[in-house]
Simulated scan of single mutants.
Amino acid sequence: MMKGDIRTTVKKVGYIQGAGDFIPEFLRIAGIQVDVLKDEDFYGNIDAAGGSPNKLSQYDAIVMGIRANNTEKKLGRWMPFLWAYVKAGGNLVMQYNTNQDATVSQLGMYKFNIANKRVTEENAVVTFLNPNHKLLNFPNRITADDFKGWVQERGAYFPDQWDAAYEPLFEMHDTGEEPLQGSTLYAKYGKGNFVYTPLAFFRQLPAGNTGAARLLMNFLSAQKN
């Protein structure tokens, strides 16, 4: 059970099933409507401006489950609709994927390269590269305290190269290892927002970690700020 000050501004989230994580259950507990998206949800009427499909445009955010690009073979058909959703003013939050059995070669609107980079020390120091970034201040003000009490790891499969359109939010590393900045990448695209985050939310939310929950809510609220 989550305890603490966890604020959110979102009411309706679309979820793309991956290998399985706790995010749909967590969001429903928080009072947010979650729809697991199916093939038919990506087709239908295009709005008058030729933008995002009506079904997707109703969502405050769309979240991709862990390793969705490895498990959901329809993703190749869905990605153009997801990009159109973001361009028209949507918010897409994508969790970690691997390069093995990938459905699509380019997940982001701008390119990034997934690598086998990870931070396995759950208490590794996290440096905020831009403490004033909107994702770190709305609706929850994120501090170093929000990275306390994490379990098992900070995250894995961090990108090691990315387009200049992306802004990395954090730097962290295991003891004696190189500093890594690929744990969360943010980019504007058209009128919307895109977040790629291989941070281990799938481990932290079932463990009841309030800081991780606050950070995830900020990612989901990107379009509200």
Rank of each mutant, 00 (worst) to 15 (best):
D39L: 01
A61L: 04
E40P: 11
E25C: 11
G31H: 08
E40A: 15
N45V: 13
G44T: 08
P24R: 12
I32V: 15
M64P: 01
V63Y: 10
I32D: 01
P53H: 05
D39K: 08
A30Q: 14
E40T: 15
A49P: 00
L37M: 00
A48Q: 13
D41Q: 00
N45I: 08
F26Y: 10
L56D: 04
N54G: 12
L37P: 05
M64V: 00
G50V: 04
E40S: 15
I23L: 05
A49T: 13
D47W: 08
K55D: 14
D41N: 12
V36Q: 12
Q58C: 09
V34E: 02
I32Q: 03
G31S: 07
E40H: 15
D41P: 04
D47T: 15
A49G: 10
D60F: 04
D47S: 15
E25I: 13
D47F: 08
V63S: 03
M64Y: 04
D39C: 02
V34Q: 08
F26I: 05
I23V: 15
I23R: 11
S57A: 14
F26P: 08
S57D: 11
D35W: 07
V36T: 14
D35I: 11
I23D: 00
E25K: 15
K55I: 07
D35S: 12
Y43E: 11
D41S: 02
I32G: 00
K55W: 01
A48L: 12
L37D: 03
M64F: 09
Q58N: 01
D39F: 04
S57F: 04
D39R: 01
G44H: 02
N45M: 06
D35T: 14
K38D: 09
K38E: 10
A48T: 10
F42L: 07
Q58W: 01
P24Q: 09
A30N: 09
A49L: 10
S52Y: 02
P53V: 13
S57P: 06
V63K: 12
P53K: 04
Y59G: 06
I62S: 13
A49K: 14
I23G: 00
I23A: 07
V34D: 03
D47Q: 13
L56S: 12
Y59R: 00
N54E: 14
I46S: 11
Q58D: 08
G31E: 01
F42K: 05
A30G: 07
I23M: 05
G44S: 13
G51F: 07
P53W: 00
I29E: 09
I32N: 05
D35G: 03
F26N: 08
R28C: 00
I29H: 07
G50Q: 03
I23W: 06
E40Y: 14
G51R: 12
P53M: 05
P24T: 07
P53F: 09
D60P: 06
V34S: 03
M64K: 07
A30P: 07
N45K: 12
R28P: 04
L56P: 08
A30K: 12
R28F: 03
Y59D: 06
G44E: 02
P53S: 05
I46M: 10
A30E: 10
G31A: 10
